[in-house]
Amino acid sequence: MSVIEVRDVDRSFVVRHRSGRLRRTSTIVRAVRDLSFSVEAGEMVGYIGPNGAGKSTTIKMLTGILVPTAGSLRVAGHTPYAERAALAQRIGVVFGQRTTLWWDLPLRDSYDLLRRIYRIPADRYRENLATFTDLLDLGPLLETPVRQLSLGQRMRGDIAAALLHDPDVVYLDEPTIGLDVVSKSNLRDFLRETNRERGVTVLLTTHDLVDIERLCSRVMVIDAGRLVFDGSLEGLHGLGEARRTLVVDLMEPAPPLDVPTAQTLRVDGPRQWLAFPAEASAAPLLAAIAATHEVADLAILEPNIEDVIKRIYSTGPAPSD
């Protein structure tokens, strides 16, 4: 059963700007156009795209903050914009940089307040709080006012807050932004486990593609308001015709290498970067280089999802109007 249903959704904004001293002109910007997708219960979906692509507009429509210009949305059986308050009971939201907790309150008091606002049954609340305190290591933080928490601690606190009322769907906006490597890894473990154990549907926007690689079986890529890709991570790699990069250090500086199966990307003194198809073997390429130059050292860089996505953005359907 689909827990999120988006059909032909459009959202345009009228942008006014000053042109001259008093005159104002307005243009219509379509932040999201012809957006259609559905998410099954229990899925964990990565929603990515460059800044201004329409990610947060989509999330705002899915949470009922924004009303769509056209099309229909259903989330957990509710029409978000028409039943905002009812929907709020069924969803959890984490707004990356900004905390939804109360700045001056200890974490525990914030949670207690949420318990009352969401009218969470007492036993369920106790159970959830115990689970999250344990998994997110919140124990030592519960009595600390939110303003004294570090970014990583606050993010953990925010994520627990978004899950306390057993939502069906959770939107996470940049949950790992600004965290160190260990915190990121712990947070990802927690999200994976929560998704599996509780069957909560997760929609994740991020700039950190490792988040996607580690967490999401499905990726949606939005660019200039359009969905340009919706599929598995492997499919995304394939679409970008991934290339690997061979980095060679020659004994002495040389002009760019000319090898038929590869493309020389960069030359820096004796070091050169050569791109070649991901599925091809590096051996014949290396042999060709060794035939004409003396090689001191070498390394092979694996295809990077970021490159792939960059390539999709640049080759994806161009905005038509």
Binding site: K60, T63, A88
Partner: peptide, 14 residues
């Protein structure tokens, strides 16, 4: 401007 209003709109209260 600070985005507080958005945060309020995802809570089940008016």
């Amino acid at each position: 401007r600070l985005g507080t209003v958005d945060q309020m709109m995802v809570r089940p209260l008016s």
